[in-house]
Structure formats: C-alpha cells, structure tokens
Computed example of a mutant assay.
Amino acid sequence: MYSGVLIIYALLSWFPGAYDSTFGRLISRISEPYLSLFDRLNLRIGMVGFNVMIAIIVLNLAASGLGRILQLILY
C-alpha cells in the first residue's frame, strides 16, 4: 500500500502545482520522511530523479525479507 503512495507522489511531479493541493500535501506528508533517507544518495541524472524508484525497490525487498523471516519463525 505504501508503494502505491510513493507512486502517486512520483506521478504528482508531472503536474504543476499538484503538491500545493490538499491531496498533494497529504501525500507529501506521508511519503517525504521515507524518501528523505534516499536524498543523500544523489540519484539524479539530469532532470530525472530515481529516488522514488530506489525507495520502492528497497521497501519491497525489506517487506519480502521480513515476510521470509516471519515465515521461518512461525513454521
């Protein structure tokens, strides 16, 4: 579900002023604390930033790793 929020955050960058709307501010408030962890990596090539994509990959890897650990513990 959080990956979806990050995708919406990335899509909002395509629309001027989208972050200034009520919905945009809500999505920003939810996603920016996690995305700020990846700002130090400087994943920008030209005008394109890959922070959101790397953040989603790390989130999915962590979720599946946690799922495997829980599966090993419970079964």
Rank of each mutant, 00 (worst) to 15 (best):
S31F: 10
S31M: 06
P33N: 14
Y34N: 06
Y34F: 15
L35I: 07
S36D: 15
S36Y: 09
S36C: 05
L37S: 12
F38D: 12
F38W: 07
D39K: 04
D39P: 03
R40F: 02
R40A: 05
N42C: 06
N42W: 02
N42L: 03
L43C: 08
L43Q: 04
L43G: 12
L43P: 12
L43F: 10
R44P: 06
R44D: 03
R44W: 03
I45T: 07
G46Y: 00
G46P: 01
M47Y: 11
M47E: 14
V48Y: 15
V48M: 13
F50C: 09
F50A: 10
N51C: 04
V52H: 03
V52M: 02
V52P: 08
M53N: 11
M53H: 13
M53L: 14
M53A: 14
I54Y: 15
I54G: 05
A55P: 14
I56Q: 01
I56S: 02
I57N: 01
I57G: 01
V58K: 02
V58P: 14
V58N: 03
L59R: 10
N60A: 11
L61I: 00
L61T: 00
L61D: 01
A62P: 10
A63T: 12
S64M: 15
S64R: 15
S64W: 15
S64T: 10
L66P: 00
L66R: 00
L66V: 01
L66K: 00
G67F: 13
R68Q: 09
R68W: 12
I69N: 05
L70A: 14
L70S: 11
L70G: 15
L70Q: 11
L70H: 10
Q71V: 01
Q71F: 09
Q71D: 12
L72W: 13
I73D: 08
L74M: 08
L74A: 11
Y75D: 07
Y75K: 09
Y75N: 08
